[in-house]
Amino acid sequence: MKLNTNQLKQYHKDGYVLVRGFCSEAETERMYRVAVQDDAMQKNAMDLNDQSGKKTRLSLWFNPGNDVFGYLTRSEKMVNCVGQLLDSDAPVCHFHSKLMQKEPKVGGAWEWHQDYGYWYKNQFMYPDQLLSVMVALTPANKENGCLQVIKGSHKIGRVNHGFAGEQVGADMVMVDNALKTMDLVYCEIDPGDALFFHPNLLHRSAANLSDAPRWSIISCFNSQSNIAYNETSTAWKKPIEMVPDDAILNWDAAPLSQADFLKKENDPALKQTGWEEDVEVKNKT
């Protein structure tokens, strides 16, 4: 699998591109079953409060292993597509992956932000050599808090970020300006669909007030040529060891307990630097 010319143009123009059916129904079912049943995900999950006090829940790890999610991250189709989009000829590396767990009625919002608003604190030099890929494990729609993006907002460059609850949020003055200038898009996607998006794309998601869960896996990638001067993990500079696409479904998978999960207190993005206090991250409407 590779992205076609129109898909590449859309990513660079809009800051994101959606690939329907990136994973088969059987692949998606296997990943969702592991996500729900493997207790390592729950034991290593971090809760982050949004501005209303609702909790967003995620598990984050660095090195892609021989578990089912490692096979997705390392699959030929994933590495090939990511390599087409990163602004570098250097090998594709994996920064981290995270399982997003937005439970019915209680799953909190993610405030407006750019991924590079977080990763700037890791001191990555080149945002165009980073990107994220979200693969839906359950349906994502307006009712259960699907991803919202501001189309083309990656062209603004990095926006100042401060703290919104326990999360890092973008300066709402610039977010409001972007919403006046560009289109707001609700990314309603089905299980197995993959959304590739630029780290400077402004995005958010509302709380899940529905009766249905919204779970997804997000893998974040980096070019080996893009140095991170404030990152203690080393996955970001290790070329990915690819596996065939059928590994997701057919290979034996290791338990997730072997993954190197991030502890909340060790995340540099959640640490105060001093300048966050000058950034207005609350929506006044």
Rank of each mutant, 00 (worst) to 15 (best):
D128M: 11
D128K: 13
Q129G: 10
L131A: 14
L131S: 13
S132P: 12
M134I: 15
V135K: 03
A136G: 09
L137G: 03
T138P: 01
P139V: 09
A140R: 05
A140F: 01
N141A: 07
K142T: 13
E143S: 13
E143Q: 14
N144H: 11
G145H: 02
G145S: 07
C146K: 02
L147V: 15
Q148D: 04
Q148P: 04
Q148I: 07
V149S: 11
V149D: 08
K151L: 03
S153D: 14
S153Y: 14
K155Q: 15
I156N: 14
V159C: 12
H161F: 13
G162A: 04
G162L: 03
A164M: 06
G165P: 02
Q167I: 12
Q167N: 10
A170T: 07
M172W: 08
M172F: 05
D176I: 00
K180E: 01
D183P: 07
Y186H: 03
Y186D: 01
E188M: 05
D193M: 04
F196Q: 03
L201F: 12
H203F: 02
A206K: 09
A207Q: 06
A207F: 03
L209R: 02
W215K: 05
W215Q: 09
S216G: 15
F221D: 06
N222E: 08
S223V: 09
Q224P: 09
S225M: 06
S225D: 15
S225A: 14
T232I: 00
T234R: 08
A235L: 03
K237R: 14
K238A: 06
E241S: 13
